[in-house]
């Protein structure tokens, strides 16, 4: 099942609603980059509120997606990282250094607008 990527003005909106498996994650990476190219979006919000567990591969893919989008000129905000997921990421040593984060979708969009406005 593919993850839907929605266009909202000059941003893309992705809400991941179920646990990702490796194939879906890679498919998502490809889809998102194509979509950015297609729509020449300036920003992307990825909401992972409903994800309770994450493994190192998915975390790496997420990090890669962020770096790749950045290369294509789109800022990425990840929103709704659950406490347990944050702890796992830190324990795995994945710090997602250059990723913007926000508490929820609303705040994420605000943050993105702010970033793009600057």
């Amino acid at each position: 099942m593919r993850i839907p990527i929605l266009k909202l003005y000059d941003c893309l909106l992705v809400s991941i609603q179920w646990e990702l498996d490796d194939a879906t994650a890679l498919q998502f990476q490809e889809d998102l980059l194509h979509k950015i190219h297609e729509t020449s979006a300036n920003g992307v919000v990825i909401d992972i509120t409903s994800i309770d567990f994450i493994d190192s591969f998915i975390a790496k893919v997420l990090g890669d997606v962020v770096s790749m989008s950045k290369l294509m000129g789109a800022k990425v905000v990840i929103t709704g990282i659950q406490p347990a997921v944050a702890i796992t990421l830190i324990e795995l040593g994945i710090v997602l250094d250059d990723v913007l984060t926000a508490l929820d979708l609303e705040k994420g969009l605000e943050k993105l607008q702010q970033e793009l406005g600057d």
């Binding site: 984060t101 508490l103 929820d104 705040k107």
Partner: peptide, 10 residues
């Protein structure tokens, strides 16, 4: 670590 994790939750 705690500070990093806090940053991740936004």
């Amino acid at each position: 670590q705690a500070a990093e994790a806090v940053r991740l939750v936004g």
